[in-house]
């Protein structure tokens, strides 16, 4: 029983990370059909923003020493700022471009950010100590669960709740939903395109910062490539969740996290190194069964 409970918590916490990532991708995709491959590098950037640039092995913590009630808003601001800046400088110029062109542009932007970090900080991972008390285990129905897992799950649920409230009950949320449903029509009806898109980027950037914080707390390190893995899984989750569907993206994020944990827990030892092959294989199977995604929005029907 405790073992099962432990697995459930493992799956939930990993799934939470993926779900937050998928949300960040889906927010932008919804309004401008852009798969933002720079999202992973946004995550890394937010983490490195806590350090002073230095190629020395020992990190010089800059913002990381702030109390949490200052650090968290600051980092969310950094994420939102970077994300909005990228929209203003880069993506705004791709409004009418082919999605493949946009995708490659976002990849190139991520490439630039990554190599900039590399130049400023070198590739050696830097240590960051954030809230060591979160590393302590708590006991829950006989299972020992690291505090951070619980916090991660709670944060994800809170973020989801806030986002749902925002989308359902505010004017901006309504505009965003309208834009995601049918962008041209929304514009005709007076939704300001640039405003909505900028808002989507801000939300996406804040989600990147949140993931960065969780990853940094969990691993205790800042590493150039730390966002890449989450970004990839989040991208896949967005698609199998049904592109444009926010609840779908979240559900698929949790599903992939759960699949990964369950494969790790149940595969025989020699097959465990092939875990990712099983996960990707499962993704292909899901796509074959539901090509429009698990929770495709009605608008996703192809039109002639």
């Amino acid at each position: 029983m405790t073992a099962v409970l432990q697995i459930v918590f493992d799956a939930l916490s990993l799934g939470s990370l993926y779900a937050l990532g998928a949300l960040g991708i889906a927010a932008v995709f919804g309004v401008m059909r852009l798969v933002n491959f720079a999202h992973g590098d946004f995550i890394a950037f937010c983490v490195f923003a806590m350090l002073l640039p230095s190629v020395d092995a020992t990190a010089i913590v800059f913002a990381g020493q702030l109390p949490f009630y200052l650090l968290i808003p600051l980092l969310l601001l950094v994420g939102a700022g970077l994300s909005m800046l990228s929209e203003v400088i880069v993506f705004r110029r791709f409004r009418n471009a082919n999605p493949a062109t946009m995708m490659i542009a976002s990849f190139a932007l991520g490439f630039v950010i990554r190599h900039l970090l590399l130049l400023l900080y070198s590739s050696r991972p830097k240590s960051i100590t954030l809230w060591p008390s979160l590393g302590l285990p708590v006991e829950f129905l006989g299972a020992h669960i690291p505090m951070l897992q619980v916090v991660t799950i709670i944060i994800t649920l809170v973020v989801l709740a806030v986002l749902v409230l925002f989308l359902k009950h505010t004017r901006y949320g309504l505009e965003m939903r309208a834009a995601a449903e049918n962008f041209t029509m929304a514009r005709m009806l007076g939704v300001r395109a640039n405003g909505v898109i900028l808002l989507a980027f801000a939300i996406s950037g804040m989600l990147a910062a949140a993931i960065g914080l969780i990853l940094a707390t969990n691993s205790g390190t800042a590493d150039i490539g730390m966002g890449a893995n989450v970004m990839l899984i989040a991208f896949i989750a967005t698609v199998i969740g049904g592109l444009g569907s926010v609840p779908g993206a979240v559900a698929a994020g949790f599903l992939i996290g759960a699949a990964s944990v369950v494969f790790q827990a149940t595969l025989p030892h020699d097959a465990r190194v092939f875990r990712d092959a099983f996960v990707y294989g499962a993704v292909i199977v899901v796509l074959l069964v539901r090509p429009q995604g698990l929770f495709a929005p009605k608008s996703a029907k192809q039109r002639v």
Binding site: I236, V239, F274, A277, Y280, G281, L288, P291
Partner: peptide, 17 residues
């Protein structure tokens, strides 16, 4: 995009194996 992601899955499987 479903096809794109499926090819991505293919890359992941081949690389992992």
């Amino acid at each position: 995009i479903a096809a794109s992601i499926a090819t991505f899955g293919l890359l992941g499987v081949v690389n992992n194996v």
